[in-house]
Design a protein around this nucleic acid. Sequence first.
RNA 1: GGCCCUAUCGUCUAUCGGUUAGGACACAAGCUUUUCAAGCUUGGAAGCAGGGUUCGACUCCCUGUAGGGUCACCA
Length: 386
Amino acid sequence: MAPSPTGPLHIGTARTTLFNYLFARKNGGKFILRIEDTDKERSTKEFEQNILDGLSWLGLSYDELFRQSERTDIYVSYVKKMIENGSAFISKEEVKKEGDRPEVVRFRNPSKKIKFNDLVRGEVEFDTTELGDFVIAKSPEEPLYHLAVVVDDHEMGVTHVIRGEDHISNTPRQILIQEAIGAERPVYAHLPLILDSERKKLSKRKHGEAVWLDTYKKQNILPQALLNYLALLGWNPGTEQEIFSLDELIKSFSIEKIQKGGAIFDTKKLDWVNKEHVKLLPPKEQLELVARDYDSTLLPLDRLKIAWKDTSIEETKNHLLHVLNIMSNKEDMMEYAEKWGRGNVLWPLRYALSGKEKSPDPFTLIAILGIEESKKRVARAIELLK
RNA sequence: GGCCCUAUCGUCUAUCGGUUAGGACACAAGCUUUUCAAGCUUGGAAGCAGGGUUCGACUCCCUGUAGGGUCACCA
């Protein structure tokens, strides 16, 4: 996996990492994390840390970690070799914009057709003529992405490259460089992209926070739930199972079941997957999650939803008034509820406390909110019924 | 625009030539006195179009259409 630390961990990067992880673990391979920070202007340590933290939160552990910024010497030796054997050359350039160099290193493009077999898409063919003699280094000491990637894959013995479909057009030029330095060609698999509701690639510019992993972390989405949902975006197990642990994903994973078309990110389904994972948690942890959810939120109450079935508003109000007394005097709530009908008493109580038709039971809510806050909320509901 | 990729319910998807085209999310309606972010029942909802190939195409081929990706001295 090869993220670039030019921004916080992107949700798409998280999914690509997951697929790489699953594939490696499934096949007993090694999972390498390579920080692609050859762009000194845009890469920062903070973003790198954010990516590392995000992966650890997700529980995606890697076997080795590299930074391209620490491997410049290796790339430089390759650039020099390539210039010597004529597969690259120093080219005089017109300076068009700020930062442009008068001289760069270009790849001598043999301009031929490149065919490769993609594990997801089958045979793909490009004519590389249109690529021209593309730039592989700003100077012999400053290698660029394509060169660094190919050298690293070669040096690290990378056998499988699983990445987003937006990289598919980068593949032919990387293959060209491989052939020039005598590197073996890895197996490629290009994943379908994650799309927004308008079927456009999820981008930081258009979608802001929705693309950062941290956003979902803040929303109390469980890491295992996010992983589960991400796996289902563009992949299916071939069975009707939908809820998976990471280990189960590893067991069921197969690259043949990856979808070709892009998939829209649906937060509703994410929420459902998350809910299913919450149910799997021990009761104590569930309670902690609930607490985080209900502490601060005060939802608007709907007058019509407070009353249970066809109980009258008047009756419901009386029950709530009693409930308020019971809370103040610490009397037995269940005794009262049994007497007047559990639904008649407990439903409006729970609704008054949570503001939701579906929520934990009222006793749990009182425990979370505290007696004072609970009383305040019940009083609020009574006020509404006047 | 060139090149590349893609095309089944609103969404995620199953189907690998013969199915009443299945499931899940979401939605709608209902049931359940409700310690229920539960469960259950029911419902609506799909093969982009046109040509082939074939006894038979959602499935294979071609064309069109639509959508997407990519075209840096970023990655």
